[in-house]
Structure formats: structure tokens, C-alpha cells
């Protein structure tokens, strides 16, 4: 029980996010209006993705230092759930975009190629592609030790190249997406202080949920590994 406190915290924070996020008063800016509530979901997904990828690369480094297979499994599962959070970030972003950016006179499908040129979208797409490539590389090697070592090396290399594509590139290219000058939703001028009291708990809640999902996946694959050994 004493070890599951963070799971309880996660559930409480998410319940709070959903109730307070939908019920509390939010500032209504032109073009955004009530859609700003999506901030509690969309931005949190990207936070969770970045945090999970970071945990994944830390585990890759730990693997290369100790050659303990546990860390290899950690690194892979965190990367997988990170990808899922990234895709959810895209989905929530697409919903938001369809209300704020999309041309109402044009069907969404036709305005897609113009909107997809958005640097933040490109950066995130590069990030996801890098991790898809990581999974492809990892599963293409049969030997267990070799697979762990090579994919850990690629993981570290990929993370180092992911950083410019997510954090630097969108700041150089012209963009419609908010948060070009600094960190989106963290700047004092970006969001109203009344939204902060929901936003920060939401980030923690979603990240904890993602970690929780990952720990279950890790337990499952550790059990599978054990079964294979016998």
C-alpha cells in the first residue's frame, strides 16, 4: 500500500483535472474561447511524452553502465508509452486545431497539407519517427545482448538529435502555434494564473498515469522474459 501512494495521487489529480478543468472559469480570448480547456489535456500529453522519453534514455545509459537486462526492458517500454502519449498529443491537438486554425470554408482534409507544415508538428513528427525507427531497429536484431546494446546506443543518439528537433527547430521557423518565444504554457504571459492551478496538477497527473501504465507493461515483459528463461 505504501508504495502505491503515487497511483492514488495520479487518480486524484486526474479526477481534479477533469472536474476543475471543465467547470472552472477560463478567460475567453477571441478565436480560442472555451477551447482553451484543451490545454489541460493537449499540452500535458507532450509533457508526459518528453518526460517518458527522458526516462527511457536514462535507462539506456544505465544499461550501458551495468549491462543489466532489466534496464533495457525499462528503456523500451518507456519509449513505447512515450510514443502513445505523443500520438494522443497529436489527436488532442488535431481536435483543437479543427476549431481554431482550420479554415471553416475548407474541409479539414483539404487544409491538412497547409496546416501540417507547422514547425511544432514537424518537430513532434520527427520525434515520433525517431522512436518508431528505434523500435524497428530493436526488433530487427535477434541476439538478446546485441539487441540491448545497439538499441541503447541508438536511443542515446536519437535522444540527442530529438532535442534540437523539438526544442530548437520550432523556435527558428515561423509558426502559428503558440509558445514560440520560450516554453509553451510555462511563460507567465502565456496562460492566466487561474489556469495554472489546474494545469500543473494536470501535468503531474497525466505523467504519473503514463508511468503507471509503463510499470505494468514492464512487469508483463519481465514475466515473459522469466518464462522464456525456464
Amino acid at each position: 500500500m505504501y508504495k502505491s501512494w503515487w497511483k492514488i495521487v495520479s487518480v486524484i489529480l486526474l479526477v481534479y483535472t477533469f472536474t476543475a478543468g471543465i467547470l472552472t472559469e477560463v478567460p475567453r480570448l477571441p478565436a480560442l474561447q472555451e477551447t482553451i480547456r484543451n490545454l489541460y489535456f493537449h499540452v500535458c500529453m507532450w509533457f508526459a511524452m518528453m518526460i517518458l522519453f527522458t526516462i527511457s534514455v536514462v535507462n539506456a545509459v544505465r544499461y550501458l553502465r551495468t549491462f543489466n537486462h532489466k534496464y533495457d526492458i525499462y528503456a523500451r517500454q518507456y519509449a513505447v508509452v512515450g510514443i502513445v502519449m505523443g500520438i494522443l498529443g497529436y489527436v488532442t491537438g488535431a481536435i483543437w486545431m479543427s476549431y481554431t486554425w482550420a479554415d471553416p470554408n475548407n474541409p479539414a482534409f483539404e487544409s491538412f497539407s497547409a496546416l501540417a507544415r507547422e514547425p511544432k508538428l514537424i518537430g513532434a513528427a520527427i520525434g515520433l519517427l525517431i522512436y518508431f525507427a528505434y523500435l524497428v531497429l530493436r526488433d530487427s536484431i535477434n541476439d538478446m545482448d546485441k539487441r540491448a546494446r545497439i538499441s541503447a546506443v541508438y536511443n542515446i543518439f536519437a535522444y540527442a538529435m530529438l532535442f534540437p528537433s523539438i526544442w530548437i527547430l520550432p523556435r527558428i521557423l515561423p509558426s502559428l502555434h503558440p509558445g514560440r518565444e520560450g516554453n509553451p504554457a510555462l511563460n507567465t504571459s502565456d496562460i492566466d494564473s487561474s489556469m495554472r492551478i489546474v494545469f500543473y496538477p494536470a501535468v503531474i497527473g497525466w505523467t504519473l498515469l503514463a508511468v503507471w501504465i509503463t510499470t505494468i507493461k514492464i512487469r508483463l515483459s519481465l514475466l515473459k522474459e522469466k518464462k522464456m528463461m525456464q
Binding site: I122, A133, L137, S140, F157, A158, S165, L169
Partner: peptide, 27 residues
């Protein structure tokens, strides 16, 4: 080096490399 160690052909290099080189190529 990674592709050679993974005993793969040059095709995996393209898969691994394209996303990684994209930021630099864009710049």
C-alpha cells in the same frame, strides 16, 4: 556503424537516418 553491427543492409540506415537527419536538412 549501428547498421553494420545490427547485421542489416543499407536499407535500415535510411530508416534510422531519415528522421534523425531531418532537423539538419530543414535548417
Amino acid at each position: 556503424a549501428i547498421a553494420a553491427k545490427a547485421q542489416q543492409n543499407a536499407a535500415i540506415m535510411a530508416v534510422l537516418g531519415f528522421p534523425i537527419i531531418l532537423p539538419q536538412l530543414l535548417l
